[in-house]
Amino acid sequence: MTQKIMPQTTLGRDAQPKSKVKTSHVFIYIFLVLLAIICIVPFYIMIIYGTHTNSEIASKFIFLPGSALVENYHSMMENVNIWRGFMNSLIISCCSTALTLYFGALNAYGFAKFKFKGNKVLFWFVLATMMVPQQLGLVGTFRIMYLLHLLDTYAALILPAAANAFAVFFVKQFIDGTIPDEIMESARVDGAGEFKTFNRIILPMLVPALAALGIFSFIGSWNNFMGPLVLLFSNDKYPLPLLVQLLQGYYGTNYGVQYLGVALSVLPIIIAFAIFSKRIIGSVAIGAVKG
């Protein structure tokens, strides 16, 4: 791989013909490529090993795909319905994301465009909640879900998503930077109610910010492990991270099946990243620098 890149460096910037600099460039590329390989290898192993039988895995180190993919898939489906988990993950993540986006935007708009009493103090309060670790209220969360009869329901994982402080912060930054007060005023002159103005006019203008935030919130919810571990009890409601953990219990010694399960749980994220990587990376940077 390094050989492939080397000619590029020599062809690249002819403006600075210092051979000393170029050798250091080669080392830099070797370093980058090695790190990239380290990033990819575990995923390669996961996919390759998912296609092998247990006895093949137990006997030697494997580089190439095997032929046991279907066999592993069938033995996995006997005890663990991975598609059910996929659906559960999808339902929980989509609903959580929708709540985070809508109520985050609603709240951000309230803070950004209405100068009510206590605006600043309440906004700082919202920001401060971002610093509180989630585990602090873990036991209490279990309790309130019990009191509201929400234990072992999707709602227990979805409803709290409506109060996402980071979403408020993120969308408010966007509103402050892009939406002038005149838009609201002209809507008011036209006689539109405040909520109608928000839903019909403001919300569509927030789409770029909501798209970036939505990807984040979706991934966060998709990867959530501790929430469902504490709040769900029925296997048929488990999202993927919990189902994968269940595989460990059912197939403690069948490695091929476990590799396949892990691979299937990670695959949607690989696909999503392949499509949205630029946008995801861009919004990580925005969120961090403004914070």
Binding site: F103, N119, T129, A162, A163
Partner: peptide, 23 residues
Amino acid sequence: GYLFIAPFFIIFIVFGLYPIVYS
């Protein structure tokens, strides 16, 4: 503005603040 921020705060009090106080 209060109406716009109210849903967030209600959810936060129920699922964010109460659990911490109760813990």
